[in-house]
């Protein structure tokens, strides 16, 4: 009995250890774009951290809201102070899973279509997100690209009536991460 229990216990530990091949990035890119007839707003963050588990298909992202860079300094200030309230909610995260893991051959270089399902936490609000993207398997590298819309109201990001003409209600978010094997 004891032996069985130990075996079970070890297998519990071993399974994730063995099946995990972790890939990571600290310099992933997330950008977003808001387009209205009045004004275009463009911002970029290239300090995105993410881990991708090729064994289970799990993928997590974390990003500091303050490290988004805008063309206009005042936009950046307003983004942090008034819209995303980055002092209250400094981090935004995504926790999800590649749902079509079986159709990806990590041993073979090439480009694969992926569907990712998960939860995005933004401005302190958690929402389910499903998106499709492209995963490129390279030599010891993975490149994940995708985009998804974020509707501001879903995340309780308020836009005052005075500037509703200038800020799109739905923002296009683009992800571009190049992973390397995690040490």
């Amino acid at each position: 009995m004891k032996r069985i229990l130990i075996t079970c216990f070890l297998s519990g530990i071993m399974i994730p250890l063995f099946s995990q091949s972790l890939f990571m990035t600290r310099s992933g890119q997330i950008s977003f774009f808001s387009k209205t007839s009045m004004e275009n707003i463009d911002a970029m963050n290239n300090e995105v951290t993410s881990i991708l588990n090729t064994g289970t298909g799990e993928v997590v992202f974390a990003v500091l809201v303050k490290s988004f860079r805008f063309e206009k300094a005042l936009m950046e200030e307003h983004f942090n102070e008034n819209y995303l309230e980055s002092n209250k909610f400094p981090k935004s995260t995504f926790q999800g899973k590649i749902t079509n893991l079986t159709s990806i051959d990590f041993a073979k270089e090439g480009s694969y279509a992926v569907t990712i399902q998960g939860e995005l936490t933004l401005h302190g609000v958690k929402q389910a997100v499903t998106t499709s993207g492209q995963l490129e398997v390279g030599k010891g590298k993975l490149l994940l690209k995708g985009n998804f819309p974020v509707t501001l109201a879903d995340y309780k990001i308020e836009v005052p009536s005075l500037v509703t003409e200038k800020i799109s209600k739905t923002i296009d978010v683009r992800v571009n991460c190049e992973y390397e094997p995690k040490k």
Binding site: G12, I15, N53, T56
Partner: peptide, 22 residues
Amino acid sequence: VMMLSVPAWAQDDLMKMLDDET
């Protein structure tokens, strides 16, 4: 139970790992 619980904590774990790394 262990098999079922593994994926559940593995993801939280991945997030925690990311937290630690960054």
